[in-house]
Design a protein around this nucleic acid. Sequence first.
DNA 1: ACCCATATGTTATGATATAGCATTCAGCCG
DNA 2: CGGCTGAATGCTATATCATAACATATGGGT
Lengths: 153, 153
Amino acid sequence: MVHAHSARDRARLVSEAERLCAEAGETLTPLRRRVLELLIAKDGPAKAYDLLAELDGESGPAKPPTIYRALDFLMKLGLAHKIESLNAFVACDVGACARATIFLICDKCGRTDEFDAGHALVDLGEAARKDGFEIKHTMIEAKGLCAACKQAA
Amino acid sequence: MVHAHSARDRARLVSEAERLCAEAGETLTPLRRRVLELLIAKDGPAKAYDLLAELDGESGPAKPPTIYRALDFLMKLGLAHKIESLNAFVACDVGACARATIFLICDKCGRTDEFDAGHALVDLGEAARKDGFEIKHTMIEAKGLCAACKQAA
DNA sequence: ACCCATATGTTATGATATAGCATTCAGCCG
DNA sequence: CGGCTGAATGCTATATCATAACATATGGGT
């Protein structure tokens, strides 16, 4: 569980991303890097069109495909994830992970933490395999109240 | 894991739904019932606008709010679920369940089965609670290859 | 210089979902 | 009865989310 990133954290995540891209034979172009930085800075779920607005630069406003392509790229490398239940995107907290993601989403404040599933996922994979189903990717989104909001209630 | 429903299964699910609504002090109106029947008949993920098209009746085509309201109602009672990663809806296989859903979704054929998590969910709930997070609802969507498609590959 | 692959820009449109207000209808109470 | 109320549905318009298809760069290899 990671909370707000420090400047050092942010820099580390980005350089980690550089390394991963190089490894994968892909390039973290300025645009992609910029989007990743925006996601990291946001430190929570970000809407595609909001990111788009932040990209606006010299030559007028950016267009939707721009941001969706960058996000697709980041997701392909596991550097970002989509929170399906929010139609929003987050930077991966742990550098990159492609196989499975677990998010705890606070209904009240919107805070969203990436979470380590531990063995729960293994169990699920095994149970599915017994039915002949081969899991490639698992997405878990749990909604409820975060510690802070629970206290406030 | 339930596969295609027999006519008897379908009837049972609907009467089960009637009972649940009565219990909850809600009414399964003709419209809501119709939507539930469509969902059950479809026996797989259904898009809102496709359901809408099937609703078309005497007085011209149905409008989006009609179907979304019916779906919201069914979901509130746990009679239907939304598959977030597909923007689609399914009837609940087991009559009704509100707390958690697990789906195995075949990337190839689109087949989607509701699955019993067993203890995996309990583990997740406990792990989250250790961080002070109170889970209200968990949604799990696992994608991969179903037995049939794996065999065909 | 040329070609090619990859990335980005741009226009248009498709797909998904909701806000806000009008209408209907059943139950109920004076 | 007559009118009130709340729940459900109908309807118009619009917001939000996402992609197809094609045009334009840009950089590396030969």
